[in-house]
Structure formats: C-alpha cells, structure tokens
C-alpha cells in the first residue's frame, strides 16, 4: 500500500508555545489514522450500513443526526443523512468494509489520502474552535462521540468530540497545512503545545 504522506510535515514543529502568562491552554497534534473512510447508505439501507460499522469497528451508532462513537483508535460519526465518516488506526478499513457492504447496501469511499485529521485537546479547545465555527461546542449540546459537518471560510471541516476536552477535525488534505497554521495562530492567545 502507498504510504500516507502528511501535508503537515513542514509545519508540525513540536514544542511548547506558551502565551504571555506562560500557559498552554491546548495541545495540538496529528493523530494520523491509517484509514479514513466515508460510508454512505441508500434510502432504505441505513440500518444495514450502521450494522456494518458495528461489525467492523465495534461502534454502535443510532440514527440521530451527528450520532457517533469513539473507542481507542476507532471513530465513527454521522456527517449527513445516511452518510458516515469512519477512522481507524489500521490501514485497509475500506477493503474490510467493501467485503461486507455490497453496492446495493452502500458505497465505500476511501479518503485515507484525501483527508487529514487534526486533534485539539485541552480545557480551551472549545474556546479555540468557537473562533472558527458557528457551532455550539458546549458539552451539553455536543456530547462525547457527537460529530458535525461544518465549514470554515467555505472549506469543509468534519468534527467529532472524542472526550470532554478533545476534538478531532477532518479537513481536506490540501487545506490541512493552511488550517493547521490558522489553528496555531488562534491558539496563541491561550498558549499551545504541539505534540
């Protein structure tokens, strides 16, 4: 399999970049999942597609908008009616899904080389993300596992909450370096660490 090359390499400068009060409010990192896959169902096969997600990723999703789940290095969430974004540490997720999702049940699109995942963690993560997206990130409205499709200056971003303080952002690969820089600039106020 072709190696996934990170577009972030030239800008991923590990270290602490504290604010003027010597604090770091967030940690920004690249989780680099081996697989990022979009799975879409037909109007009458949504249940079957969610069963496939449960069987391959061991994650159970209900049919509510944005519903998602995370466990270890596996993540899945709803991004649109009958469409899901899946990520896993291992490569080859698309092939495993294709083996149990025939064309009359759904379509599998391997986005492993087309999207870059960016993780922001820390008590100020909601605050930083609120600078970019017109989305309510409060825990009550956006619980752990929940996902959202939104955009920043007309560029798509799909976001999932991994924990109370952690969010994974999936952006177009070609946009990732620019977005990473913006994220660092937005985090200067709270201070940040790149891991």
């Amino acid at each position: 399999m072709v190696d996934t090359v990170s577009p972030l390499e030239p800008v991923l400068n590990r270290g602490r970049f504290a604010n003027t009060a010597a604090q770091t409010g967030v940690v920004i990192s690249e989780p680099a999942p081996g697989s990022i896959v979009q799975l879409a169902a037909w109007p009458d096969t949504d249940q079957k597609v969610r069963e496939a997600i449960a069987s391959v990723l061991k994650l159970n999703l209900d049919n509510s908008p944005g519903a998602g789940a995370v466990s270890g290095h596996r993540a899945a969430f709803n991004i649109a009616p009958r469409r899901y974004l899946l990520a896993e540490e291992d490569e080859g997720l698309a092939e495993r899904l294709l083996s149990i999702v025939p064309a009359d049940v759904g379509s599998v699109t391997d986005l492993s080389h087309g999207r870059t995942a960016i993780r922001i963690d820390g008590e100020k993560s909601e605050w930083i993300l609120a600078k970019f997206f017109a989305v309510d990130f409060s825990l009550a409205r956006f619980p752990v596992g929940q996902g959202v499709s939104t955009s920043h200056h007309d560029i798509f971003t799909q976001i999932q909450r991994r924990s109370e303080t952690t969010f994974d952002l999936y952006v177009f690969r070609s946009f990732a370096r620019s977005f990473w820089r913006s994220l660092c600039h937005a985090s200067e106020e709270t201070g940040y660490e790149i891991r």
């Binding site: 908008p65 009616p81 499709s149 939104t150 798509f156």
Partner: peptide
C-alpha cells in the same frame, strides 16, 4: 419560496 443547499454541512 426558495431553494437553499446546506453546502457547508450535510449538503442537503
């Protein structure tokens, strides 16, 4: 009566 697309979201 207008047509809109949620182009920066679920694309509906």
């Amino acid at each position: 009566n207008e047509i809109w697309q949620h182009s920066g979201g679920c694309r509906m």
